[in-house]
């Protein structure tokens, strides 16, 4: 059984200008010890999915479909059960480490608080555990005495990871965990996540706009556009041989250094990521698509099998395999 499964998840925000469909039918499963990457641009709904898993969406947001954590529907849980599940079954590492930590409390206290809230241990045991967690994420245990502003960006991100691991969750959701970090620190954090995942059998849902980060970290990769998954498959394959024109453009946006094709030839995509409250008709990508045909403006195809273990939501996929 999957540790996390999304079944036809729809999330619609309410706004003054009317309903905003942020996620429009996403199905995804995460097996034990698996790493799944979720890539996409701003407004594609990837962060909404992170919040939806733990029911952290704003009040009044419409959710349909199912979110199963270890087979149990998160949206059918009673409030008490939900609180228990949050952080112990699944935890989130948010982006922007400065804002997710309380600036006026020592980081150690913040980790201890999470432990005491969810497990019946003595404060002394919680303190010991906090030290262990910090060591595990590569920080000296005495960093517990520091305030967030006394730590560097990379160290804060490590603290956030320690915080997420406080209650031994089965699933770790990392929402843009490396975005604001320098390349070298980013590599350090990625290596740490990989190591934790391997050693603890964590299941990792890795959400980022940076497709290139995902190809090396994730066995499976899902690319989102306008609230849907448009392509799915093994990380390296999706990046190397994309089936969906959007994935192709996204992959080309990260040039391969040393590749003569991209030298002096930056590749991009015309137009802007779509506004979720005003999606184009048909396939929402057709307005930016280089290979769109007449039917694309009215026909919105779902995911189709493109190759073994690969699927993409594009009319051309079928044409290639008929």
């Amino acid at each position: 059984m999957s540790v996390l499964e999304l079944q036809d998840l729809h999330v619609t925000y309410r706004s003054e200008g009317g309903p905003v469909p942020a996620v429009r039918g996403v199905s995804l499963s995460l097996e034990r010890g698996d790493t799944v990457g979720l890539a996409g641009e701003s407004g594609c709904g990837k962060s909404t999915i992170a919040a939806a898993v733990l029911r952290l969406l704003p009040k009044g947001t419409e959710v349909s479909g199912k979110v199963l954590l270890d087979g149990e529907d998160v949206y059918a849980m009673k409030p008490g059960r939900l609180r228990a599940v949050r952080w112990t079954s699944a935890a989130i590492v948010f982006q922007g480490a400065l804002h997710s930590l309380n600036p006026v409390r020592r980081v150690g206290n913040q980790i201890e608080e999470a432990i005491l809230l969810h497990t019946a241990v003595s404060p002394r045991a919680a303190r010991t555990r906090t030290g262990e967690l910090l060591v595990k994420v590569g920080l000296p245990a005495d960093r517990a005495q520091r305030y967030p502003h006394q730590l560097s960006g990379g160290q804060r991100q490590r603290v956030l990871i320690a915080l997420a691991l406080a209650c031994d969750p089965k699933v770790l959701i990392a929402d843009e965990p490396t975005t604001a970090l320098d390349v070298m620190v980013q590599a350090q954090v990625l290596a740490l996540l990989e190591e934790l995942q391997r050693e603890q059998g964590l299941s990792l849902l890795f959400i980022t706009h940076d497709l290139s980060v995902l190809t090396t970290t994730c066995e499976r990769l899902a690319v989102m556009y306008a609230g849907r998954i448009v392509e799915q498959g093994p990380g390296r394959e999706v990046f190397a041989q994309p089936h969906h024109p959007y994935t192709r453009a996204l992959a080309a946006a990260f040039p391969t250094i040393g590749d003569p094709a991209s030298r002096m030839n930056p590749a991009g995509l015309a137009g802007d990521p779509p506004d979720p409250s005003a999606l184009p008709s048909g396939c929402p990508f057709h307005v930016r698509c280089a290979v769109a045909t007449a039917e694309c403006s009215s026909l919105d195809v779902g995911l189709r099998v493109a190759a073994p273990g690969r699927s993409a939501a594009c009319v051309h996929v079928e044409a290639a395999h008929v």
Binding site: Q155, M184, Q188, S212, T215
Partner: peptide, 22 residues
């Protein structure tokens, strides 16, 4: 060399993740 080795798109280069802070 280290900077280049951590660029995810470059394969075949052994990663040299520098320790320590920026």
């Amino acid at each position: 060399q280290a900077l280049l080795s951590v660029v995810p798109e470059i394969e075949g280069l052994e990663q040299q993740i520098l320790t320590g802070e920026t």
